[in-house]
Structures are given as structure tokens and as C-alpha cells.
Design a binder for these strands. Structure first.
Lengths: 192, 192
DNA sequence: GTTGTTTTGCATCGCCCGATGCAATATCTG
DNA sequence: CAGATATTGCATCGGGCGATGCAAAACAAC
């Protein structure tokens, strides 16, 4: 047929995910990705199209990764899983330092692109919905009433923690919020 | 002497505050301010210097305005003042629509300029410190123990609410978080 | 080896930004 | 009115971005 690519598409996508996560949409440039990946600007553009198209693929990948992690933590679903998740929020994360303290790509994206592209907003909303459903299912699994409203609160608190992390640049910044949120959930479980 | 200015410096500063608040640092341009204020780019630059200098003046002004409002709400300081403040968070705000749903200029700034200018970071940190001290004083005024740590939590929760507002683009989005935070504060006041 | 197709590298375009030089302009002082 | 001085408007510079045109290069099929 023809000349094959001399880079792995998934690998480049992962690298782009890291860059967008760490630096944000605007600050991440095709030139920068060229340096980081070793793949020429022209090839990147050939493969992924315009910048926003690449970004949307990155967002989708991020959501899939989160989905997979959530499925593990919430198996089985329940208050214990919620507590485990929140406990982890306040502790140092694994992986690359610049990234593990960057908070959440989705939160950062909304702050940066506030009133931008509908496609981006839709992707972020899908992400939020995923969390909402997960919390709700977990609360219902343990027979906790008012699960819908309370799941909504948990999403809010979670995003608050992620904001804190971004604000202070370190994962541990979420600890105070996480701690009190855990206490609240346990009060629910105790019937209050 | 010489030719006088034909614009009011404070007025332009207020306009710049609105623009940065609504659109963020990058999206706010000198050209845009020229259109909005009717003052030429050259004059703006003459008066305020480079863009970051103008931004720093805006941040300082924002903090002073907030300081004044806080002094009113927390007179006298105490749990009641905290409750009043949090109750207000979940309700529709006054003023220009685009701005009242923009959240908090300081929160937005940190998200946008994450690892940028030290001067900006210092200004934001001063703002956080102002809140921390206010909460701490209020808690101590009512004899609530562990005031320092709990004030820290309140700052976190507050910034979480402001994030929520920005995320959803409407003030009411903070309501779930505000409600539970109020309950938590009242539990402290009740001695738990 | 020849042909055909895709990728790749290089150069370039158009755009918008922040910033500045310069000359014309408007006002105050005397 | 005349002179001094700060402001203003215009044109422009330099830079970085996303995006694209084009020809050379690399590989697969035959």
C-alpha cells in the first residue's frame, strides 16, 4: 500500500493527555507536542486534525480511564467504596509529579474554556453524570435515602476538592474537605 | 501644566475588573478594553503599564471590595455571620448577569494562571488568608474549639462552592454544598 | 525495479496579541 | 497669545499561534 507511520497513535494520545492535563488547552501547542513526542507538527495535524478535535479525543480518553478506575473502586458499590475514594483524595498520588498535582482535567477545562465549545461542554457534562450515577448507585446499594440529592452534593464536594488541589498545587490540600465529607457520609449511613 | 486625561481612572479600573472577572486574563485584551471603555489603547498603556500590572491593580481592588463586604457581614463575628454568608452563596446574586455567575475572580485566576507570576500568586494567597482569618475569628468569638483547622475547612468548602458556580454558570449551583456546610457548622456550635 | 500511496519535513500564510515610537493635539500657566 | 507638557491616535514592530501547500522521502504491492 503505502508508507506506514513511524509513531504509535495511542502513545501520542497519551502524551497529549498529559500535556493538556498539566498545562491546559491554550498553553499546550502543537509545536510543544512535537518536541515532547518527537512527531512532526505536520504528522500530528494529519492524524488528529485541528487542535480542538485532538482535545476532544483526549477528553474522551480521560473519561474512559476514569470510568475504568471507578468500576474497580465501586465493586461492590456502597458507602465503604465512597469512603475509600474520599480517603484517597487527601493523600499523595502516584505518577508524574506535575500531573498528580494538576487536579482534574475536566475541572481545569471548564475553568479555562468556560463559555467555549459545546462539544467540550458536553464531554465534561458526561463526566459529571458518570460520577453522579456512581455515587447514587452506591448510596442506594446501602439503602441510604435521598440518594439523588446526596449524590449531587458529593459531586459538588468532590469537585471542590479537585479545585483545592489545583489551587494549592498539591494533592494533600484536599484533605480537610475530604475528612469532613467522610464524616457526613458516615452520619448518613448511621441514619442521621 | 499639561493636557489632562479625559477619562476617570477609577472608572476604567472598575470596567477592567468586570472584564477580567467575566472573561479571564487571556481573553481580556487591551483592544477589548478600548472598545468597552472608549479609552484608547495607548492611553490605557500609558496609565496602567503592561497588562500584568493592570491585572494586579484589579486583583488588589477586588480584594479591597471583598474586605469591605466581609467587614459588614462579620459585624459582629460569630457562627451566625458564617451561616448568613453561606446561605447567601446558594441564592441568585445581584448585579450584571455575566459577572454574578462568573464565580470568584481569585479562584478563576488561579485556575487560569496556575503556575504563573509570583505577584499574582501572592495576591491570591493574601485573599485566602483574609478569609481564613475571618472564619477563625468568627469561630473563636463563639468559643468553638479547633478554630484554626475548621477555618481551613471552611475556606476549602467556600472555594468549592465558587468552583461549582463557575462550572455550572449559575449561583444556585453552590446550594447543595452550602447547605451541608451550614449543617456542619451548626453541629460544631452544638458541641459535636 | 517500477509504480502508487501515504507520510513527513520545510516553508509559509494569516491572525491576533502586547508593546512602543512618533507626531499631532489639547490643556494649563504665565 | 506663547510656551511647556502630558495625552492621544496612528502606524508599526516582533512574536507565537494554528493551519496548510508542496515536494521529497519511505514503504508496500507487484
Amino acid at each position: 500500500m503505502a508508507r506506514p507511520r513511524n509513531f504509535d497513535e495511542d502513545e501520542v494520545l497519551g502524551c497529549a493527555l498529559a500535556a493538556f492535563w498539566r498545562d491546559g488547552f491554550e498553553a499546550t501547542t502543537y509545536k510543544g507536542l512535537e518536541v515532547e513526542t518527537g512527531v512532526g507538527v505536520r504528522s500530528l495535524h494529519n492524524t488528529f486534525g485541528e487542535k480542538e478535535a485532538l482535545f476532544l479525543r483526549v477528553l474522551a480518553r480521560y473519561r474512559e480511564l476514569a470510568q475504568a478506575t471507578l468500576a474497580q473502586v465501586f465493586d461492590p458499590p456502597g458507602v465503604a467504596a465512597i469512603r475509600a475514594l474520599l480517603s484517597g483524595m487527601g493523600q499523595p498520588a502516584e505518577g508524574d509529579e506535575a500531573i498528580r498535582n494538576a487536579g482534574c482535567l475536566m475541572v481545569n477545562t471548564v475553568f479555562e474554556l468556560g463559555r467555549a465549545s459545546d462539544a467540550v461542554r458536553a464531554e465534561v457534562e458526561a463526566y459529571r453524570q458518570m460520577w453522579r450515577d456512581t455515587f447514587r448507585t452506591a448510596l442506594e446499594a446501602d439503602g441510604i435515602p435521598d440518594a439523588g440529592r446526596r449524590a449531587e452534593f458529593l459531586v459538588g464536594a468532590l469537585w471542590g476538592m479537585l479545585s483545592q488541589i489545583r489551587l494549592e498545587g498539591r494533592t494533600e490540600a484536599a484533605a480537610p474537605l475530604a475528612q469532613v465529607t467522610i464524616e457526613t457520609v458516615e452520619a448518613w449511613a448511621a441514619g442521621n
